[in-house]
Design a protein around this nucleic acid. Structure first.
Lengths: 123, 123
DNA sequence: TCCGTATGTCGGGTAATATCGACATATGGA
DNA sequence: TCCATATGTCGATATTACCCGACATACGGA
């Protein structure tokens, strides 16, 4: 994930419809959803959605695959990993002491064990 | 970090100058840098930079503090944490199995031990 | 108070983006 | 081939973002 790619990704997610689409496709991993279904669920005209999907695709956040008459879109986990890594490593830049607490905060979120009802206390 | 705040943050970072400014301020944690110094280093007019700094501030990614005649800007680590968490928890939404590998990939980046020259093999 | 420095705000010109109607392309079935 | 479905592309318009000159505000020193 280089800087240009990161900017594409940030830019793609900096729009409410696209952000929701991305989340929708994340929820539907690994099956994905056809373009029309995404447009229908978001209440957006199909051509507008097509543009949004193209932008997300160009950013590498989703990927298209033709399945018969439909084109199914899927979220790209690697892109999320790359973007989160960019964010975190960015702040690391030679200073892991800054970054460690960030990682520590993320880890409980997705560990197989439940986070023992402990949330981030600091607001 | 709610959706609107995330969009503000993504939007703020989706611009090359602002992204670089943010990284610059990360490098200068915890001392920060005065606005004029940031503008000078980036080779950007001070008023243009002022706007960028305001956008980053509004997104919560940096914070301003007056120090005598200067206004010193500092990166907000919590914002990075929040944004990375938003990204990751976003994909977690009930499915930690998707998220675990993302965390696993981030962890070596900032651990006190060096990552043993092992990078993400998959491109 | 007056001046110089540091920063923010306003205005307008230009460029980029969002949206959507209309049309084009691609697939599968008869 | 013809048709219906599914999706993408083009063109126009409205909105927003970026940039920077000019002016305004805030602070410190004399």
């Amino acid at each position: 994930m280089d800087t240009d790619q990161a900017i594409l990704a940030f830019s793609a997610l900096a729009q409410s419809t696209r952000l929701e689409v991305f989340r929708l496709l994340m929820e539907h991993e690994p099956d994905g959803l056809p373009a029309g279904e995404v447009a229908r669920r978001m209440g957006v005209p199909h051509n507008t959605m097509s543009t949004h999907l193209a932008i997300l695709t160009r950013a590498g956040l989703i990927e298209a695959e033709r399945q018969s008459r439909s084109i199914v879109y899927r979220a790209q986990l690697e892109a999320v990993r790359g973007l989160a890594g960019f964010l975190v490593k960015d702040c690391c830049g030679g200073r892991p002491e800054l970054c460690a607490p960030l990682i520590a905060d993320l880890s409980p979120c997705c560990s197989p064990q439940k986070p023992s009802s402990k949330e981030v206390a600091h607001g």
